[in-house]
């Protein structure tokens, strides 16, 4: 088993772990962290697969994708944290409110 393959497997593991945490946890901070773990998993897969050709120089394209992905992840996390803060101000809890109520 090559090192790159091991890294890719760890990436897949992080993705699954994050998915599990995203589903089971109710606190929004944990959900946001879970999404970030999932994102790191995907990035790890991309970086690991850049070595797939077996040459000494890794393929730079997946690295470029990871950099773009990190920028996206940072902006998404910022938006998610802002929304969490606003929700906390509004409801006093950092959790998703129940489905829409009947009356306003």
């Amino acid at each position: 088993m090559s090192t790159a393959f091991l890294y890719a497997l760890v990436g897949m593991g992080l993705f699954s772990l994050g998915l599990y945490a995203l589903i089971v946890h109710t606190h929004l901070l944990r959900k946001i962290l879970a999404l970030n773990v999932m994102g790191s998993g995907v990035f790890l897969v991309l970086v690991a697969l850049a070595k797939r050709t077996g040459e000494i120089q890794p393929d730079p394209v997946p690295h470029a994708m990871v950099i773009t992905g990190i920028v996206v992840a940072v902006s998404a996390t910022a938006l998610a944290l802002t929304l969490t803060l606003k929700l906390n101000e509004e409801t006093g809890r950092a959790e998703l409110p129940d489905e829409q109520r009947e009356s306003h």
């Binding site: 995203l22 929004l28 959900k31 999404l35 998404a76 938006l79 998610a80 929304l83 969490t84 606003k86 929700l87 509004e90 409801t91 998703l96 409110p97 829409q100 109520r101």
Partner: peptide
């Protein structure tokens, strides 16, 4: 509450 909750659910 409804809009922020809806937005958060949508974002996730």
């Amino acid at each position: 509450r409804d809009a922020l909750g809806g937005a958060m659910r949508y974002l996730l």
